[in-house]
Design a protein around this nucleic acid. Sequence first.
DNA 1: GAGGTTACTGACAAAAATGTCAATAACGAA
DNA 2: TTCGTTATTGACATTTTTGTCAGTAACCTC
Lengths: 201, 201
Amino acid sequence: MSITKHKNSPRIRRTPEESRANILSAAEDLLVEQGPQSLRLADVAKRAGVANATVLHHFGSIDAVQQALMERMIADLVENILSVEIPADAPLEVRTAGLKTLFDAFETRGAARLAAWLELTDETSRLTVVREVVQEVAQKKMGNAGVPADVAEDIILLSVTLAVGVGLFGPTLGRLIGKPPERARELTLQMLMGYLEGLSG
Amino acid sequence: MSITKHKNSPRIRRTPEESRANILSAAEDLLVEQGPQSLRLADVAKRAGVANATVLHHFGSIDAVQQALMERMIADLVENILSVEIPADAPLEVRTAGLKTLFDAFETRGAARLAAWLELTDETSRLTVVREVVQEVAQKKMGNAGVPADVAEDIILLSVTLAVGVGLFGPTLGRLIGKPPERARELTLQMLMGYLEGLSG
DNA sequence: GAGGTTACTGACAAAAATGTCAATAACGAA
DNA sequence: TTCGTTATTGACATTTTTGTCAGTAACCTC
């Protein structure tokens, strides 16, 4: 009956891990470029260059894709934050470098959008790892510089919260009022660094 | 053929304005409580206590509902911000009061979620009014206190950006690391007020 | 090569969400 | 009271999105 004779482009056969990574990367691009509402099955599959059914083969549902993306982005963010090495000396420059890494992650690497996405979809329970990470950074890295643990946690809470605001809305609001998009970050970092100097000085 | 005899609860007939407001309020509740992905036709209609077709009668499409909600929330926010009166004297307490109003709007009145929603859906072009509002506040209200216009605009840019971060993510992040949910706001306001004192002092 | 495993796919089915329409019923005006 | 307007609605139609399945083809082992 049905004659199958299609000259389709040859299939790409990846390992399951590669295929999942390919799909998640496509989804991440869509999230950053067009927002969470663009994370539809057909859109993700098209962006990844595979058939819809391939996405479902690897993840089971489009919901599972979104959840896996959340997990991967959280893991990437944590790894990125923890990669900042803070020696016990040179406190000022080190703080500067650490803050810049933090703000960069939230602005250019989509972490602010991830945070907003998690918050708006009520998925912040996925962030329980954050508690351990914050405690680790507060104790091991900032503790070495002589900062008490609870003060260090306050500093992290403050810095991350501000980084979310700056990364998510700073460029847009800056442009809206006729300032360069990086102006909000400049102002925030200047204020934050001054504040931290005042604490330790 | 078809016999229609339903003992439904009596209809509520509103003016078009009332009906639109009722539907938008329901949508706003859903947005704040469950996020933008809950702004579905059936969900909004159910929350508003009307039939799906009623929503479409007044707005034409669910997309138009979302856009009208954006406009209404932006207008409410602007009105709320502009309602803060800043006399020319008593600079310190006035700043405090103004900042608290701002942070309160972004935290408890859903403005931070509105900002995140607009940003994630690429609808920030709706915020062009913001430019005028910022300029008005910078000139009329802060100008009275002797603050140069461009400095005033920087202060507003900084304050609003931080308010978004604090309002959106402060409570969640605070709870995550075992601190009270208002801790991020406390820290931010303390830092911001100190910074502003340093500018004028 | 031959054969087995399984990533991959198109065609199809199912479900979910949006939108249409004719009929109904509040409400005000004549 | 009667009548006209129109906000409201259930039933239905359409579109969009998700998910199923059997067949295909790439890759590996023997």
